[in-house]
Design a protein around this nucleic acid. Structure first.
Lengths: 334, 334
DNA sequence: CTGAAAGCGCTAACAT
DNA sequence: ATGTTAGCGCTTTCAG
């Protein structure tokens, strides 16, 4: 029986090529992988047949027999907020250095939650890194015993987790504000994402500790939403002289709102962002921000995955739970 | 400690679980995949064994026997330039809608060229989308008969390609500049990437057609490099009243340079960027730019891959070569 | 230099 | 409800 190329939809296999070239399949393997022990003539003939049949080796069969590079999934809420690509970039870099590859899923598009991303990713990867929000535990169960490293997730319900020391960051910001004589500050929180309110709670606590009154408002985590939200706030809180934003993108919106309201920054009102993405330097005035060392975050996540994969770190153990700190980068806006 | 010490390094297979649970491997399959035809008791016992052994099914074996979602590689020079994540995001979105997944490789980190990315990606994917520069042909040969869609690559040397109509874009910009009375414009080109000079050549031609003298300078494609480059230019070319940048990120640097040189925008000097990334709206003044519909670009690339994969479009045929156009979005800077 | 066997780990089809 | 038999497409022995 001849398996011909006319079989609709069927992909050519190594046997098809072998038959077409009149050789055995091992010879095809040798030709395709530039292995020794084959005459130049045969090699060329086989390669030609392969091209004609549109043959390309199945990565599954190959992976099955050879073992393959480990691949890690990266679940991200929104590639459109510059923070996440910056983070993704550092994960990809660290993973590439190890010869791993990274499968990215951006679950922000549809109505999907991080869980959808995880279920798409799960069959494809050996480990998972992601901003999973409340769903870290479910994500871990979807992945079985393969390690999940959750970022900024409430409980340490995944094999590994990386958190941020918000009380510390908030302290940094409020101290700076207090020492520059600000009297009334507002925190513009995101109405979604993140461990519900941990940033806001930390800021509130720090404000209380510094004896500074704090107004809190919410908006979607985008520059335009932030801008719109601030518009209203400025009327209600005339005495406001400092604004802290949930992230740098929202801070950019705040800057715009202040500008169009005719308030000078930092003269009338100081603005501090959070994340430390490159965007901040391009704004006018340049954004003072609570910066994360993004490369360090990505590296930490990948290191943790590696340790978990190798068994060097026990899933759920204290060593699998890292806490990173922000640093206050003072530029022009505060 | 539940980690299997008995088989150092070897991953648990379905047979290990079967043996541990005292069942056949088929029963393990049923338990793991929540298939019918198994008693709740056995299922639970098997699942427990699986967890204890740290078993997780090999995605290769599974893929081999079941066929698997197609996966496309995405080769990108620099996730750090906001243009690329924006593009990546739209590719990921379009791919996810089809049930495909996307493996991202950012080859900008090390010294690597796009070719390194392709060779890492090649064994992992069924198709490739990427900014491949001059290397589209080599990339295609690395991928064999699996389709490669190159963006902004010189020759149509890959199965599919998506190009941009730079003469049209340049015309848009120069017309706008001419009609707003600009007399002397400069083009800040990137000293790398892109089909060598095609943007620059198009701008030069359009300037000539509009009868406007054009100065051309080069810098690395980053905001800071752009800023530094402009510093010198302003002294040499005092009469300059308009600046076109290779991309929006560089335009952001231009804005900063002009600001610190004390030149008002657009009063003293108009600035036009290129790409149309969201960043432009956050700058002060808001950036006028030659914008691409990023979602359309990603969608087009994925559509083309699909057509190529299904055979609906012949590799290298005219239908496999798309040309997209920019649109001039006039904001404040010009 | 080339070919014939023997699996890799899993699931679909049939048994039982 | 469970077990048995065949492969999926490829590379690794090992023979010729």
């Amino acid at each position: 029986m001849t398996r011909s190329a006319d079989a609709p939809g069927r992909r050519a296999t190594i046997l098809d090529v072998a038959a077409a070239a009149g050789v055995s399949r091992q010879t095809v393997t040798r030709a395709m992988n530039d292995m020794p022990g084959i005459s130049a003539a045969t090699r060329e003939r086989v390669q030609k047949c392969a091209v004609e049949l549109g043959y390309s080796p199945s990565r599954f069969a190959k992976g099955l027999v050879q073992g393959a590079r480990t691949s890690v999934g990266l679940a991200i809420p929104d590639l459109t907020n510059p923070y996440f690509p910056a983070f993704a970039s550092s994960v990809v870099e660290a993973a590439t250095q190890r010869g791993w590859n990274v499968v990215v899923d951006d679950y922000g598009h549809g109505t999907g939650s991080g869980l959808d991303a995880v279920s798409r990713l799960a069959p494809q990867v050996d480990a998972l890194i992601g901003y999973l929000g409340e769903h870290a535990a479910e994500a871990q169960s979807l992945m079985g015993s393969r390690p999940v490293v959750g970022l900024d997730c409430p409980g340490g319900s995944s094999a590994g987790s990386i958190g941020f020391d918000y009380p510390y960051a908030a302290g940094l910001a409020l101290d700076h504000l207090a020492s520059t004589g600000r009297h009334k500050v507002a925190f513009l929180d995101s109405d979604q994402g993140g461990p519900a309110g941990s940033r806001g709670a930390a800021v509130a606590a720090a404000a209380a500790a510094a004896g500074i009154p704090l107004a809190r408002i919410h908006a979607s985590p985008s520059a335009t939403a932030a801008r719109d939200a601030i518009g209203g706030l400025l009327e209600k809180e005339p005495g406001l002289d400092a604004l802290l934003a949930f992230n740098d993108v929202m801070a950019a919106g705040v800057l715009k709102a202040l500008h169009s309201a005719g308030r000078s920054v930092p003269g009338d009102c100081a603005v501090i962002g959070m994340d430390g993405i490159p965007l901040g330097e391009l704004l006018t005035p340049e954004l003072t921000t609570l910066a994360l060392d993004l490369r360090a975050v990505g590296r930490a996540a990948v290191d943790l995955v590696e340790a978990l994969l190798s068994g060097a770190v026990e899933p759920g153990s204290p060593a699998a739970s890292l806490t990173l700190r922000h640093e206050l980068i003072v530029r022009q806006s505060a």
